[in-house]
Write a protein that binds this DNA or RNA. Structure first.
Lengths: 333, 333
DNA sequence: CTGAAAGCGCTTACAG
DNA sequence: CTGAAAGCGCTTACAG
């Protein structure tokens, strides 16, 4: 920790005996500056340990070279991986990443967005919890939960296709009594995956029992997954296979089976939409959709960068990440 | 996304018919400004949708109200939880958090620190991968892997105590042939936990066989954990219990046991230093140290905030998070 | 209680 | 090829 203040461009210019404007241009490799001058300036900068002050540059150029990312819970494996992917492409593009955590509270989401606006970030990536109703005041890409006709883009997975793919696979194993353990039917993931299940019931001619659909009320926790699974197992004629719509739900469902003395997949087949961390190390290894959170982050970041560069205002891009099955053993394979 | 530019304080002042200095003070709730003026200014600000420009404020006050955090892998559950804890206390203190990911490459760590310096962050939290050799140029708190006599503080867990606690518990179950699956013996976690195991061997009178210590060479991955466990199991007289020094290692070790047809804990007891995500949902539920990553993040952030406020330059605080056992079933309980 | 002025550290037309 | 000057949007002594 240094007490003395950082050298400024003026200090460098003085040491190199040029004007600050010349020093600025030299350091930017402007072709207008002679090679000898550049050499002098660079030498002076190095000697002084000069580090440009991005705050000043941001103020002057009116662009902060910072992007914001707003997530419900940075501690959750899902979101931390999205952040990783996004961070990687943003940083490559020269943007540092300001992370805001909302704890899924809409109020905190609004505050987070406001803070980001005050920092004059170039743009923002948002996994909404339902907080922001109004049109955002900065270039915004929504991911995970999408918000139609707002922002410059949306990225989420092919939720309907994903659930149908999972059901289809179970159907291929001969199951017709298939249950669904779902998250709260709000926002994109909750509603679309449920819709996917309903479609699958029709498409694949499954037993259309409303009590085969068990949704958690408020959270996507293992606890809700276990509860939902227990309700399924308590039925007069329980399903022979179950689709869970999220990683935590899957883990909870799995442990509920274990506690009920059921073997997976022998007594009950289980597949999951999200692949939990170390899903391949579970007992049994879980059949799920291929993990692509980093890809989602990369894609969302790319959409944002694209929007920042383009001058046109096309309608928001609406991107669906394709789903793919990773077949392990919990399905019966 | 708004095309028109954000209103400035000058715009607010004009609308309220005061000087910008007065507007500034009114919005800061300075006691020097009359209540009626404040009312006018606030009304003008609200009408215009004024949002202070923190970039300008930062330049002027020479403090960015941003903190940096540098981690090897934001996608890893461990680090993402630390970030969550840190983010929470920093944000409460009015600091936004810039996250840098190094992929464990020392070169990227140096670059990350430089970028943070250029952003003139107030201070930084670093989980080093061994990159930064020199004295940091900003207030720095190291966490996870500590760096003595640098920065303003260090936070890590009581690594030696932790391993001893785990061994002691296994010893309580009657085991004397206890193996150790460790991460690379570099940096704090790798070296101190190994040291803890060596001490435990002596203290608890265990079989002191060098081949009971199996370290991974470069990574903390499940793969290395499985390899190390396999080496242990291939021994002439394999251990009856194993301590793993990290979450990924534990999961890899567990799956190696499974593949070898060993039941845990009946055939081999297993305990882990880190508690993996959903460790309670594993089969068997894993006995490990209580998870306290968020606490580590909170503590590191608090140390930083303290250093930022204090004018004194005390020697770096060196904090050890106490460890605690969460007894589940993999140990034989 | 309020205002005019300077200045944080840069970049970038504008001159020469 | 180089420099003097203005200005990004704030805050804060300094006057009054």
């Amino acid at each position: 920790m240094e007490a003395e203040r950082q050298p400024t461009l003026a200090d460098v210019a003085r040491a190199a005996r040029v004007a600050t404007s010349t020093a600025s241009r030299a350091l930017q490799e402007s072709p207008r500056i002679s090679e000898t001058t550049k050499l002098r300036v660079r030498a002076a900068a190095r000697t002084l340990g000069y580090r440009p002050n991005r705050v000043a540059r941001s103020l002057r150029t009116r662009t902060a070279n910072i992007a914001g990312i707003v997530v419900p819970d940075i501690g959750a494996p899902f979101y931390s991986r999205v952040v990783k992917g996004a961070q990687d492409v943003l940083e490559t593009a020269g943007l540092a990443v300001l992370v805001m955590n909302t704890q899924r509270e809409p109020g905190r989401e609004v505050t987070a967005l406001r803070t980001l606006l005050e920092h004059r970030v170039s743009g923002v990536l948002v996994a909404t919890s339902g907080g922001s109703a109004a049109e955002p005041e900065m270039p915004t890409v929504y991911f995970d939960n999408i918000v139609r006709n707002r922002g410059v883009g949306n990225v989420t997975r092919a939720n309907v296709d994903g659930v149908m793919l999972l059901v289809e696979h179970l159907r291929g194993h001969g199951h017709t009594r298939i249950g669904y353990v779902g998250g709260p039917p709000t926002l994109t993931s909750g509603t679309e995956r449920l819709e996917g299940f309903r479609q699958a019931v029709t498409s694949f001619g499954l037993a259309a029992r409303e009590d085969y659909v068990q949704l958690s009320e408020a959270t996507w926790s293992p606890h809700s997954g276990a509860d939902a699974m227990r309700r399924l197992l308590a039925l007069d004629e329980p399903p022979t296979a179950v689709v869970t719509s999220g990683e935590s739900l899957a883990l909870g469902a799995l442990s509920a089976c274990r506690n009920a003395g059921l073997r997976v997949p022998e007594d009950l087949a289980l597949v999951s939409f999200d692949d939990p961390p170390f899903g391949d190390l579970l007992d049994p290894p879980l059949t799920a959709l291929v993990r692509n959170e980093e890809e989602m982050g990369r894609l969302a970041a790319s959409l944002l960068l694209h929007a920042l560069q383009s001058t046109a205002f096309p309608p928001p891009a609406d991107v669906r990440l394709p789903v793919e099955l990773v077949v392990r053993h919990s399905c019966g394979c």
